[in-house]
Simulated assay, not measured.
Amino acid sequence: MSAPKDCCRNRRRTRLYRLLFALFLTFIIAILFVILVIWLVLRPTKPRFSIQDATIYQFNVTAPNILSTTLQVTLYCRNPNDRIGIYYSKLYVYASYRNQQITLPTVILPNYQGHNDITVWSPFLYGSSVPVSTYLTSALSGDENAGFIPVSIKLDGRVRWKVGTWISGHYHISVNCPAYMIYSPGSAIRLQQPSGCSVDV
């Protein structure tokens, strides 16, 4: 008598498990479909940065392996999204030369960038008596003789996305802008031409 009862119980369990699995699978597919629809409607795109101008007023080896730098950069940033605003919670801008940081980070104050808005920042960057490697000082001498100094302007900070009244959590943003500088003895070192930046969010 117990065998038929056990068989019925097993069938019921099997049906229950299949039903739960089908419900779970339907739930996952529905979530993925909603995400796909939201993505197709919003088309989220990273902000676009470029360096428009840069002038180095001081770029001197003041002692063995000590570099002092003063420069001003003009950064152009555009939000290419039609339906998404961007909050820049805080951005730090600094200069590097041959992958070594040569200025202190300069803070760009928090601001909001609306749909398709453009923002321009022109911060000064300072590095007073920064210790650098021996390789860097010899490379600088060679670059000055060649009349060309490769400097990178980097931004590091956090952003939030705004869609309607909804605001996302913080996301890390990292921007790298190569600035190809023309060196001429006795004059300020100027940017060769505007250049785009790589952006990681």
Rank of each mutant, 00 (worst) to 15 (best):
F124C: 03
T103Y: 03
W121G: 05
S96C: 12
L104A: 08
P110Q: 05
L109G: 07
N99K: 15
Q100E: 04
Q101N: 02
V93D: 09
I108S: 04
L109E: 11
T119S: 12
V120Q: 08
L109K: 10
S96N: 12
T106D: 11
W121V: 09
F124A: 11
F124L: 12
D117E: 14
Y97E: 01
T119E: 05
P105A: 11
P110D: 10
V93R: 02
P105E: 12
Q100I: 05
H115F: 14
Y94W: 13
V120N: 09
T106H: 05
S122M: 11
V93F: 04
Y126T: 10
L109V: 06
V107M: 00
G114D: 08
S122R: 14
A95S: 12
T106A: 13
H115V: 14
R98Y: 06
T106K: 05
P105K: 10
T106C: 06
Y97S: 01
Y94N: 09
G114W: 06
Q113N: 09
H115A: 15
P110K: 10
L109A: 13
N116Y: 14
Q113V: 09
S122A: 15
H115M: 15
Y94I: 07
L125S: 03
V93K: 02
S96I: 08
Y94V: 03
Y112E: 14
V93M: 06
V120W: 04
P110W: 10
N111I: 07
L104M: 06
I108R: 02
N111E: 11
S122W: 03
I118T: 15
D117W: 08
N99W: 10
L104H: 02
S122K: 13
P123F: 04
S122V: 07
V107R: 01
I118E: 15
Y94P: 06
N99G: 02
Y126A: 10
H115K: 13
L104I: 08
P110N: 07
D117H: 11
P123Q: 09
N116C: 14
I108W: 02
Y112I: 13
L109W: 08
Y112Q: 14
P123H: 03
G114I: 03
T119D: 10
I118W: 10
L125D: 10
V93A: 13
L104F: 09
Y97F: 07
V120R: 14
N116M: 15
Y112M: 12
S96M: 06
Q101F: 00
L109R: 08
I108A: 03
S122E: 04
A95H: 02
V93W: 07
P123Y: 02
I118G: 05
Q100R: 15
Q101K: 04
N99F: 09
H115T: 15
Q100P: 01
I102G: 00
T103I: 03
V120H: 07
V120M: 11
Y112D: 09
I108H: 01
T106R: 02
D117G: 09
I102D: 00
Q100L: 09
H115P: 06
D117L: 08
L109Q: 12
R98K: 15
V107T: 08
W121S: 13
G114Q: 05
T103M: 03
T119V: 11
